[in-house]
Amino acid sequence: MDLNKLRTFCSIAEKGNFSAVAEDLFMSQSAVSQQIQALERRYGVVLFDRGSKGATLTEPGRILYNKARKILDIEDEINQEFDDLRGLKGGELHVGASTTVGNFLMPFYLGEFKKRYPEVKVSMMVENTRIIEEQLLAGLFPLAVVEHETQNSSLVKEPIERDRLVLFVSPEHRWADRESVTREELMEEPFITRELGSGTREVMEEKLKESGVDKLNVTMELGNSAAITTAVAAGLGVSILSRRVVHAQLESNMLQQVPIEGVRLEREFYLVTVADRYSSPASLKFREMLVSGDATSPLPDVR
């Protein structure tokens, strides 16, 4: 169906004059007449009564006008919504985030995005890194931010912000007043860690192994950072998490940070997308904001 012919037809129906429509459309009157004749041939009906007072719709013409007007209104709505998407006056942003990023960084990132584009609806899924990568590949969202460098060749990764992992203990722990502990001491102490699939756990184990810490004395595995900080504060063991996660507890002396001799645990947070997959205007703008460094967390990272 030729929408241009329908638009010409509706204009004549509304103005009642072929020559006026031809002038509005910068067309010759014969070209306008040819478009109407083409519609009449297509449907096998006469659409207008042409008289000295202008053009009036026949009964078939009124039927076509009512349907054509709806079609053209829908077309106009589609164009308007696409214009809104391009200008981010509407649309949606769906993102994924691994646990630490989702709880401690993404609220700042998404808050900044909403300040810039308040009419875009935002939603976020938070899981551990392994699950987020699986969901990203399955198409549940177009991009994600994770805390471990992906090894999946189907994913494109871009570093966006640095982070530091720190060892922390209860204020009553015998290490609380120590200037540092050795790697050997760390390997013997009851240790509380995140679950398998956690990006924090993978980075921690990888960096510790590079520093000569081959094995930890893991006595508890917990599925989120809040449970770990509570367990450490209760004296059930020591742990290593992002400094962003324990910042408030360290500042209030509910937990104590203890350096590990000769070990500095740093990492990057990564924006990940699927190679060659369509990205919405909102997700493109969000990516641009993160990669450019325009939005960063006010929480400390690598002090």
Rank of each mutant, 00 (worst) to 15 (best):
M1P: 08
K5F: 08
F9A: 12
C10L: 13
S11P: 03
A13H: 06
A13T: 10
K15E: 10
K15G: 04
K15M: 05
N17E: 09
S19N: 06
A22N: 01
F26L: 14
Q29T: 13
Q29G: 01
Q29M: 09
V32W: 00
S33M: 13
Q37S: 15
E40A: 10
R42I: 10
R42F: 12
R42L: 15
R50Q: 09
S52Y: 11
G54T: 13
A55S: 15
T58W: 06
P60L: 09
P60W: 05
K67R: 15
D73W: 04
E77L: 11
I78E: 11
N79L: 14
Q80L: 15
D83F: 10
D84H: 12
L88P: 08
G90S: 14
E92H: 14
L93P: 05
L93K: 05
G96V: 06
T99A: 08
T99P: 00
T99F: 05
G102A: 06
G102Y: 07
N103V: 10
N103C: 10
P107N: 07
G111R: 01
K115A: 01
R116V: 01
R116Y: 01
E119M: 13
M124A: 03
M124N: 03
M125F: 04
L136A: 08
G139F: 06
G139L: 07
L140E: 10
F141Q: 01
A144C: 11
V145L: 05
H148S: 09
H148C: 05
T150K: 08
N152D: 15
K157A: 15
K157F: 07
L165P: 02
S170L: 03
P171W: 04
D177L: 15
S180N: 09
E184P: 03
E185T: 05
M187C: 14
F191E: 04
I192A: 00
E195R: 10
S198D: 10
L208H: 07
L208P: 04
K209A: 11
S211P: 03
V218A: 04
V218Y: 00
T219W: 02
N224I: 06
N224C: 08
T229P: 02
T229Y: 00
T230G: 06
V232N: 05
A234I: 04
G235V: 13
S239E: 08
S239K: 07
I240L: 01
R244M: 15
V245S: 11
H247G: 02
S252E: 13
N253E: 15
Q257F: 06
V258A: 04
E266D: 15
E266N: 14
E268I: 03
L271F: 06
T273M: 09
T273A: 04
T273E: 13
T273G: 08
D276S: 13
R277K: 14
R277Q: 14
Y278D: 07
S280K: 01
P281I: 00
S283Q: 00
L284A: 09
M289H: 02
M289D: 03
L290F: 00
A295P: 11
A295N: 08
P300Q: 05
D301C: 12
